[in-house]
Write a protein that binds this DNA or RNA. Structure first.
Length: 280
DNA sequence: CGATGCCCCTGAGAGC
DNA sequence: TGCTCTCAGGGGCATC
């Protein structure tokens, strides 16, 4: 998403902003749109699952998509997003009842934030205080950075009695891994999701580090995983769901042809998919 | 301190 | 057709 938004946001000025519904998980401040208008985006970056647009007034726009959020880009004069009925348009651009924020930049482009379940958030935080903000202060290292290594995992998981799967979802351990990629990484590393975090051997933690990086790199290159709501910013589906080895594959034979069957279990309220034969 | 369950919300699909 | 139930890329909070 960050890569898709970069060409129409970074270095560009916000010429218009408006909010529709403002009662998301974290409600927008009343003057949210006014504070955005006229600002230039100095840098568009990402930390964990947060998209960050550093503005030219010392504030940073923080975006989280929650479960069902997405961003879409509409270029004036370009073809409509695939599958959008002609009738549902505002300013000549597709609009649904779940479009909560519309931002226009001088790219020129219109950027729409859509979130049916409204678990997402958008807020403005002083750029200087970003690192100390409660959303960011306790986040673990970026999985694609060199900080994620067997040695790091060994240290941070020491004494942790939680299952390794749950530890991977803990954003204080590693920042940015979600349910799909936790399952896929554990499968590739042949580690049981039920194994207690502290009991995973150093050797396996090495395999896990590499698996996490590989899965995330591949998924990003594929445009993400389109299960329900996710689409790329151009409206096209991501492709990584076609490459799942275990996620959503309960009852199917293990892709390694080990003869095992993919099982679905529930851990800490989330579905986990794994091969009991490969991952022990 | 850390683990667990519940909750926020809407929509899709299955089963009856 | 319509009801009820379960499930979904996340994470904050109360409760043990």
């Amino acid at each position: 998403m960050r890569r898709g938004l970069q060409p129409v946001l970074e270095g560009h000025r916000i010429v218009h902003a408006e909010t529709r519904r403002t009662d998301l998980r974290v409600p927008f401040p009343a003057n949210f749109a006014r504070r955005l208008k006229g600002r230039r985006v100095k840098r568009l970056w990402r930390r964990a699952k947060y998209l960050l647009a550093e503005l030219d007034n010392g504030e940073t726009l923080v975006v989280h998509l929650g479960m069902s959020g997405r961003m879409s880009v509409h270029i004036p004069g370009a073809r409509r997003e695939p599958g959008v009925p002609r009738s549902h348009t505002v300013h000549g651009v597709a609009s649904s009842r779940h479009d909560h924020v519309i931002i226009e930049t001088d790219a020129p482009a219109q950027i729409v934030f859509t979130d049916p379940r409204r678990f997402g958030l958008m807020m403005l935080i002083d750029t200087e205080a970003l690192g100390a903000h409660p959303l960011f202060a306790a986040l673990g290292p970026e999985p694609l950075s060199q900080k994620l290594s067997a040695v790091y995992l060994n240290a941070v998981l020491k004494g942790k009695k939680t299952p390794i799967k749950s530890a991977l979802l803990d954003q204080r351990v590693i920042a940015g891994i979600g349910n799909i990629y936790a399952c896929e990484a554990l499968f590739r590393a042949r580690i049981s999701p039920k194994r207690l975090a502290a009991n995973v051997r150093l050797r396996s933690l090495g395999a896990l580090s590499l698996s996490i990086k590989a899965v995330l790199r591949e998924a990003i290159a594929a445009g993400g995983s389109s299960l329900r709501d996710h689409k790329r910013v151009d409206g096209n589906l991501g492709d990584f769901q076609h490459s799942f080895a275990v996620y959503g594959q309960g009852g199917q034979p293990c892709p390694t042809c080990c003869g095992g069957t993919i099982r679905r279990i529930r851990q800490a309220g989330r579905s986990t998919f794994f091969c009991p034969k490969c991952q022990s």
